[in-house]
Simulated assay, not measured.
Amino acid sequence: MKNLHDVWRKRFLHYVNELQKYLKYVFTGHLAIVVVFVLGAGGYQYSEWLKTVPSDFPGTWLVATVIGVLLSFSMPTTLIREPDQVYLLPLETKLMTYMKKALSWTFWSQLFIVIVPFIVAIPLLSQVSKIQPKTLGLVFIIMLLLKWWNVQVEFAFRWANRGQGVWGDRIVRAFISIAVLASAFTMNPLYLLLLIIPIVFYFISWSRQLKGQPFPYEHFVKMEQNRMLRFYRFANYFTDVPHIQGSIHRRPWLNGLYRLVPSHQKNAQDYLVFRTFVRTDDTFYLWLRLTLLSAIGAAFIDIPIVVMIFVGALAFASAIQIKQALSASSEFRMDMLFPIAENARNNGILKLVRVVQVLQALIVLVTLVIVGVEQASLYALPIVVLIVSEITLRMSK
């Protein structure tokens, strides 16, 4: 490669191809239908809430706080790899040429995280807080400048401190961002001018500390590995990703549940499947997340048909993915040496999925009772969970 521009270009193309390879399995037609229904229900609920929100609602402070906190999360995407600790050492004096490309991509790729909440908040700011369009335009420009500042400062802070104390830095930047946005909403030029001082001082102070500091390859390599691992784990919910291996945790606080399986030879596979589900992070947290989403949807979506589709889709996802995850293991296991019926494991998996889906239905029911839902039709949601789960188990291979 001729220079660091070529290094970035080749790595960026590989990174984009890697994302596209798995995202095509994530954003399928089924997911699109669910997203459309959720966005439609959320938009309807939001518009209805705006009709009843009191005039003294602190909309500007709420929006400034949410966007300010989101701005503070500006983790740089450097695409640094482990061999760079050796091969890029001779070019370390020119490393900023590479990093400028990386920080530019970080800025543009993370803009949607703050632009989407800002667009969603425009009706609230216009109707309740009476913010004028020219003020919204000014706030939007300031928000972009703050995003650039947050990206630059977090990168400099991580370099200067080798990744230590990042949360303290984020808290400082979050408070500064919130104060700047709140001042912009109120069109207070004095406060804005005063806040420029800590912004410039904070940026210059950390930028100066980079001089003479060796680049912390270990920190940025680990950060890139963790970031890609999070993406692969997310994609693994929709398709098989060979890059990851499921992590295992004992979870001793759930040991008492194993007693629910009678201690008999015929229940050996039931016990092993149950233990595998509880201790495997991927399957256990997948079911937990989908169950919590079902409960949240049941609590906050008031349109019966929409919430039924939403909860039914999550019940389908829970049943099919847990069944496939537990059935996917094809390697040799010690239980294959024992005289157990060949279909015992499959029956144990079906039994486990039915049990956890009944638990999911009960959690949805308890949520409806706690929230005090008045529409009687919504109390059919637990039945929807059970029916969809059973149909999924019977129709899937």
Score class of each variant (00 low, 15 high):
residue 282 D to V: 01
residue 283 T to D: 04
residue 284 F to Q: 10
residue 285 Y to L: 14
residue 286 L to H: 15
residue 287 W to M: 05
residue 288 L to F: 14
residue 288 L to Y: 15
residue 289 R to I: 11
residue 289 R to D: 10
residue 289 R to L: 08
residue 290 L to F: 02
residue 290 L to W: 06
residue 295 A to C: 15
residue 295 A to G: 05
residue 295 A to Q: 01
residue 295 A to S: 11
residue 296 I to E: 02
residue 296 I to P: 06
residue 296 I to S: 08
residue 297 G to E: 12
residue 297 G to I: 08
residue 299 A to T: 08
residue 299 A to L: 14
residue 301 I to P: 04
residue 301 I to C: 11
residue 301 I to N: 11
residue 302 D to Q: 01
residue 302 D to L: 02
residue 303 I to Y: 04
residue 303 I to M: 10
residue 307 V to Q: 01
residue 307 V to M: 02
residue 308 M to T: 12
residue 308 M to P: 06
residue 308 M to E: 15
residue 308 M to V: 02
residue 309 I to Q: 14
residue 310 F to H: 00
residue 310 F to Q: 01
residue 311 V to K: 01
residue 312 G to R: 00
residue 312 G to L: 04
residue 312 G to M: 05
residue 315 A to H: 05
residue 316 F to Y: 09
residue 318 S to I: 03
residue 318 S to F: 10
residue 318 S to E: 01
residue 318 S to P: 09
residue 321 Q to T: 02
residue 321 Q to N: 09
residue 323 K to Y: 06
residue 324 Q to C: 12
residue 325 A to H: 11
residue 330 S to T: 13
residue 331 E to R: 14
residue 332 F to N: 13
residue 333 R to I: 13
residue 334 M to G: 07
residue 335 D to C: 10
residue 336 M to F: 04
residue 336 M to K: 09
residue 336 M to D: 08
residue 337 L to M: 11
residue 339 P to A: 11
residue 343 N to S: 13
residue 344 A to D: 06
residue 344 A to W: 07
residue 347 N to H: 00
residue 347 N to L: 04
residue 349 I to G: 03
residue 351 K to Y: 08
residue 355 V to N: 13
residue 355 V to C: 14
residue 356 V to S: 14
residue 357 Q to M: 09
residue 359 L to Y: 05
residue 360 Q to C: 14
residue 360 Q to K: 11
residue 361 A to Q: 01
residue 361 A to L: 10
residue 361 A to G: 10
